[in-house]
Amino acid sequence: MTQITSLLRPAYLAPAFLAIVTLVLGTAAAAAEAPRDVVFDVYRNGSAFGEHAVRFTERQDGQLEVDIDIALRVGFGPVTVFRYEHEAEEVWNEGELVSMTAETLKEGRRQRFSLVRDAEGRFVKDGETIDPLVPSSHWSGYMAGLPAVLNTETGEPMPVEIEDLGMSEVETGAGPVMAWHLRMTGTLSVDLWYDETGRWVGCAFTIDNQNIQYRLRNA
């Protein structure tokens, strides 16, 4: 899901959505209260496919820890024919990503990376310095004007195009809700929804003729 490419266009994101994103990151930065956990049941062509969870913890030092776990599987009885796993830990301070570690199992191969923000505000990953970017973990939303996002599978910059589709209805475990609808387009087109508080509440995309739908469990 994170392998998505093209170019951000600032005009696409309406002021209302920018306010939503600011609210989310502002809440995290203040560390007065961690955001609510986000847990999705994931479906492939209508059948159970796995889970995508984002859980938040306020640390004693006031930083926000974000733990991300994705586990997707297709099998026939005990035989697994497809397996995808992704685990990541993000640490945020005052609305900025300060460190991240991630491990991904994809196509039978594991890939790991870690990065940390240095004193100059840049990311250092495996000895390489790169400009700081918003990670493609989706929960924090995407602001206008960014030339790229950080690919959370590889730790590399990833250009994207964001299209603002306004308000639309998305299905959750508690029924349909109205939410702000964005489309991220590149090698893959991903639809994302955020509610009035900025909470990530929906996701859908198609890959290899497989329709993938996220349904928020803890709505």
Rank of each mutant, 00 (worst) to 15 (best):
T2L: 03
T2H: 05
T5M: 13
S6F: 07
P10C: 07
P10Y: 10
A11S: 15
A16V: 14
L18M: 09
A19T: 15
A19C: 08
T22I: 06
L23A: 13
L23Q: 13
V24M: 14
V24T: 14
G26N: 09
G26K: 05
A28M: 12
A28L: 09
A28D: 03
A29I: 03
A31I: 02
A32D: 05
E33L: 11
V39S: 05
V39A: 08
F40C: 04
V42A: 01
V42D: 00
S47P: 02
S47M: 09
A48H: 11
G50W: 07
H52R: 14
H52G: 08
A53F: 06
V54N: 04
V54T: 14
R55K: 15
R55Q: 15
T57G: 05
T57H: 12
E58D: 10
Q63V: 02
Q63W: 03
I68R: 00
I70A: 10
G75N: 09
G75M: 12
F76Q: 13
G77R: 11
P78L: 09
T80R: 07
V81D: 01
F82K: 12
R83I: 15
Y84Q: 06
H86Y: 05
E87T: 15
G95A: 05
V98C: 06
V98G: 03
M100G: 01
A102L: 07
T104Y: 01
L105G: 13
L105S: 13
K106N: 14
K106R: 15
Q111M: 15
R112D: 12
F113Y: 13
S114L: 02
V116S: 06
V116L: 04
R117Y: 03
D118K: 09
E120Q: 15
G121R: 11
G121P: 06
G121M: 12
R122S: 15
R122K: 15
K125S: 13
G127R: 04
T129W: 02
I130C: 07
V134G: 02
H138V: 12
W139C: 02
G141H: 04
Y142P: 00
G145S: 07
L150E: 07
T154W: 07
G155T: 12
M158V: 04
M158L: 10
V160C: 12
E161Y: 06
I162E: 00
E163I: 11
E163H: 06
D164H: 08
G166D: 00
G166P: 01
S168I: 03
E169I: 13
V170I: 12
E171G: 02
T172E: 04
T172A: 09
A174G: 13
V177P: 01
V177R: 08
M178V: 10
A179P: 04
W180Q: 08
H181K: 03
H181T: 05
L182R: 01
L182F: 05
R183P: 02
T185E: 09
G186P: 01
T187L: 13
T187P: 01
V190H: 00
W193T: 02
Y194G: 01
T197S: 10
R199W: 05
R199V: 08
C203Q: 14
A204I: 03
A204M: 07
Q210F: 13
Q213N: 12
Q213A: 08
R215Y: 03
L216R: 00
R217T: 10
N218I: 02
